[in-house]
Simulated assay, not measured.
Amino acid sequence: MLLVIPDFPKKFALKGLLVKFAAADVERHIRKKHPGCPDFAVAFFVSEIMKKEWTGLKLGRAVGIIMQTTLRHTMTDYDQMLLVGVDRNEALRRVQPKINAMIASWTTTRKSRA
């Protein structure tokens, strides 16, 4: 069963259901929770979330998964570490502070450039 859920109330669990979130809801969530996220990144994250059918997850968790995964593989040395034999958990431990810092920097509004 696949549901497209616009503005699904957070209090309801979606255990076992396949869900596709509405693009407008995804964008609204990112802009509210991560107002400093660059526009190009918002558009990318929305498109990535829209490509998937999510099982039993709320929107915020889906956004978190996509942000973490994208940043890990595109903005860190995670993949290179794996290629040279660094254990997956150790590589993740090494890059996680950088990922956390990038996401944390998006939780505040960007300052205007004047």
Rank of each mutant, 00 (worst) to 15 (best):
L2G: 05
L59W: 12
L57V: 10
S47M: 09
L14Q: 10
F40P: 10
R93W: 11
K98P: 05
I99N: 03
A22S: 10
G36N: 06
G56M: 08
V26Y: 01
I30C: 08
H29F: 15
W106V: 00
G64Y: 00
A23Y: 07
K15W: 04
P97A: 05
A22G: 05
E27S: 10
G36S: 09
M67A: 09
L17E: 05
T76D: 00
H73C: 15
L18E: 11
I49Y: 05
P35N: 03
K51W: 03
L83K: 13
A13R: 14
V42I: 10
K111T: 11
L3R: 12
P97T: 00
T107G: 04
G85W: 11
G60D: 07
A23S: 14
T108G: 08
M67V: 00
M102Q: 06
R93A: 14
L14C: 04
A104R: 03
L3A: 13
V86L: 04
V46Y: 06
D7A: 15
R113F: 03
L18N: 12
T76P: 00
P97L: 03
K52Y: 05
K58Q: 15
F45D: 02
L82N: 06
K51H: 06
Q68S: 15
L18F: 09
L17I: 09
R28E: 15
H29R: 09
S47K: 10
G60S: 07
E27N: 08
D79F: 03
M81E: 05
V26W: 09
P35R: 01
M81L: 12
D39H: 10
M81G: 07
F40N: 15
T76C: 02
A13M: 07
K11P: 07
D39W: 06
Q68M: 10
T69M: 06
A24C: 09
V95N: 08
M67T: 05
V19I: 15
P6K: 10
V19D: 06
V42R: 04
D7T: 07
N89H: 08
V86R: 04
S47V: 04
G85F: 13
N89Q: 12
K11E: 15
S47I: 04
R72S: 07
P35H: 02
V63F: 05
L3C: 11
A23H: 09
M75T: 03
F40R: 14
L92D: 12
D25E: 14
R61I: 13
V46E: 09
H29P: 00
G36Q: 05
I99H: 03
P9V: 11
C37G: 07
L2C: 05
T55V: 08
L2A: 07
K111Q: 14
L3W: 12
F21C: 02
R28Q: 15
N89W: 03
A13N: 14
E90I: 10
F44N: 01
D39K: 12
A22I: 12
